[in-house]
């Protein structure tokens, strides 16, 4: 299989006052054309750092290494900054968590959408505006022509996120990385935006890497799932494999925490895995989950083996049941 995106042994180290923070540790996954990979995990497990590492947008204090980082035939690990920049916004787009601040307050929506298009595709101002208006319609914004002349502060959060999605689509990307695109929105709008992403994906055929900490979302839209814990992918496979037979105790714990209509009463605290994520500064000996794992055993003190079963992989001393 020739994947659209192939990541092998991705590592992100951050220089922090306390030393080196290993935010992403030896992460591997693949994304095929047109499919949806969901990356899940608790806050701070390195999801955003993984996304930013793909985009080449890591903060200044970060260092990225990878055995293999290939997107659409381009070796991102070896590509010059200019080469990566030419891909961003064109073939490889990103949508962020915070729509309220993701658009520049000083320029109109139209200006910002058109700039991306003209940067990568050239062409006339009119052609760019036409594309922008077309996509605003596609993301469900009425009176698109009028919206193009408006400034971000004149739009609600939900509308701004739709604009961000339109911006990501401007040049017809083959992959969109969406980092918790609905977390900052109202619950009712969250569902609409997710459905929109799914519909647009069906229409335009791009692949989607969706980062979320909500397994309920994953269950609805993922083709494949990668579960991250403390900077590592601890389990990955198709959505069917992971949901039907979670192999890693952490994944199983997350699935148990999904609120089920009827079973969870309103106002009741949702289930959570007890304990906290280990500090990511310095090296972690053995399985990172073992302080919180109900199945921990002496063998877990050394690095757990990776089991594979028909593309379903997990890192745990416990093999297939």
């Amino acid at each position: 299989m020739s994947a659209l995106l192939s990541v092998e042994g991705l590592t992100v180290d951050l220089a922090v006052p306390a030393g080196t923070l290993h935010a992403v540790r030896d992460v591997s996954f693949e994304v095929a054309r047109g499919e949806t990979l969901c990356v899940v995990g608790e806050s701070g497990c390195g999801k955003s750092m993984t996304a930013l590492a793909l985009m080449g947008l890591l903060p200044r204090n970060a260092r990225r290494r990878a055995r293999r980082l290939v997107f659409d035939g381009v070796d991102l690990a070896a590509a010059s900054p200019a080469r990566t920049n030419a891909l961003r916004g064109a073939k490889l787009s990103m949508i962020f968590q915070e729509p309220m601040t993701a658009l520049n307050p000083a320029y109109t929506i139209g200006n910002q959408l058109c700039e991306v298009y003209r940067r990568h595709k050239g062409g006339s101002r009119a052609a760019a505006r036409e594309r922008a208006a077309f996509l605003l319609g596609k993301v469900g914004i009425a009176a698109a022509g009028e919206r193009l002349g408006q400034y971000p502060h004149q739009l609600s959060g939900g509308l701004r996120q739709r604009v961000m999605i339109a911006m990501a689509l401007m040049c017809g990307p083959s992959l969109i990385v969406a980092d918790e695109p609905t977390t900052a929105l109202d619950v009712t709008i969250q569902a609409q935006i997710l459905k929109l992403l799914k519909d647009l994906q069906a229409e335009f055929g791009m692949a989607l890497v969706l980062i979320t900490h909500d397994l309920g979302v994953v269950a609805r839209i993922a083709d494949r799932v990668a579960v991250m814990y403390a900077g590592e992918v601890v389990e990955r496979g198709t959505a069917a494999q992971v949901f039907a037979a979670p192999r890693h105790p952490y994944t199983a714990g997350l699935i148990d925490c999904i609120p089920v209509p009827g079973r969870t009463k309103p106002g009741e605290r949702l289930g959570a895995i007890p304990g906290t994520v280990p500090a990511l500064v310095g090296t972690i000996e053995g399985c990172a989950f073992r302080q919180r794992c109900a199945f921990a055993q002496p063998a877990c003190a050394s690095a757990p083996p990776v089991h594979a079963d028909a593309g379903h992989e997990w890192a745990c001393v416990r093999g297939a049941a």
């Binding site: 916004g89 787009s93 700039e115 991306v116």
Partner: peptide, 21 residues
């Protein structure tokens, strides 16, 4: 700022990122 990150994520030229945005 987030919008400058958006500009970078959109592959805009360094000059546009710094001066325009």
């Amino acid at each position: 700022a987030d919008y400058v990150r958006t500009a970078r994520a959109s592959g805009l030229s360094p000059a546009s990122v710094v001066f325009k945005h």
